[in-house]
Computed example of a mutant assay.
Amino acid sequence: MNENKEMIQHDYQNQLKDFYEQTQEIVSQIQQGIRIKKDIPIQINNLMSQLKPILESISQNGEIQKYNWLYLRSLIVITTRDMLLNMQKLFPYEKTAQNEGFEDELDIVLQFLCVFEQKPPFTLQRICELLIDPQKHYKSSKKILFAMEKLVNVST
């Protein structure tokens, strides 16, 4: 049984590394403040859904030691983008009085996430909870967007 668990763990490590390699350019563009306008390619979406158990595990126990943080960060950044865009489709976001729209706020959240290069934010477990089931607590793209901004705008 323990050998089977190690085999699954090794497979996730390889998939996570593959995901990182496939998304490195996208994450780099986000870090540079370049807005990603196109959809994520199908193969990345498929790999992202295969890696969802990693996020579920982190949301339950907060443990990430077994994963390379840089690889995991790519998964978190891309999944956050995907989740927030889906929430925007379900619950359209109106511009604020300062004329900032959803995309502006999304860019801020993603850039904050990219700042964590050496270690994850201490709020990672809560971030993963929202990534797994965003509608459990939020029925508004604006509210979940600001909740995510608050979670990634931390110092560790």
Results as ranks from 00 to 15, higher is better:
Arg81Glu: 00
Leu85Phe: 01
Gln98Cys: 13
Asp107Ile: 00
Phe112Ile: 06
Val109Ile: 09
Ile64Trp: 12
Tyr93Phe: 15
Glu103Gly: 00
Lys66Asp: 01
Glu105Asp: 09
Glu105His: 12
Gln88Trp: 07
Lys95His: 06
Phe102Ile: 08
Leu70Lys: 08
Phe102Met: 07
Glu105Asn: 11
Ile78Gly: 03
Leu75Thr: 07
Ser74Ile: 00
Glu103Asn: 07
Val109Pro: 00
Tyr71Ser: 05
Leu106Gln: 09
Leu106Tyr: 06
Gly101His: 02
Tyr71Trp: 13
Ser74Gln: 00
Met87Leu: 15
Tyr93Asp: 13
Gly101Asn: 06
Val109Asp: 03
Asn86Gly: 15
Glu63Pro: 02
Ser74Thr: 03
Gln98Ser: 08
Ile78Cys: 03
Thr96Gly: 09
Ile76Met: 06
Thr79Arg: 15
Lys89Gln: 13
Thr79Lys: 15
Asn68Leu: 05
Glu100Leu: 09
Lys66Thr: 04
Phe102Arg: 03
Tyr67Trp: 15
Leu90Thr: 15
Glu103Val: 04
Phe102Asp: 06
Phe112Leu: 14
Asn86Phe: 10
Leu106Cys: 05
Arg73Gln: 13
Met83Lys: 04
Leu106Thr: 05
Glu94Arg: 10
Leu90Val: 14
Trp69Arg: 12
Trp69Asn: 10
Ile64Ala: 07
Ser74Lys: 00
Met87Pro: 11
Met83Ile: 12
Leu90Ser: 15
Ile108Leu: 15
Ile64His: 10
Leu90Tyr: 14
Leu85Asp: 08
Arg81Met: 02
Ile76Ser: 06
Asn99Ala: 04
Leu110Tyr: 00
Ile76Thr: 14
Asn99Arg: 01
Leu106Phe: 07
Arg81Gln: 03
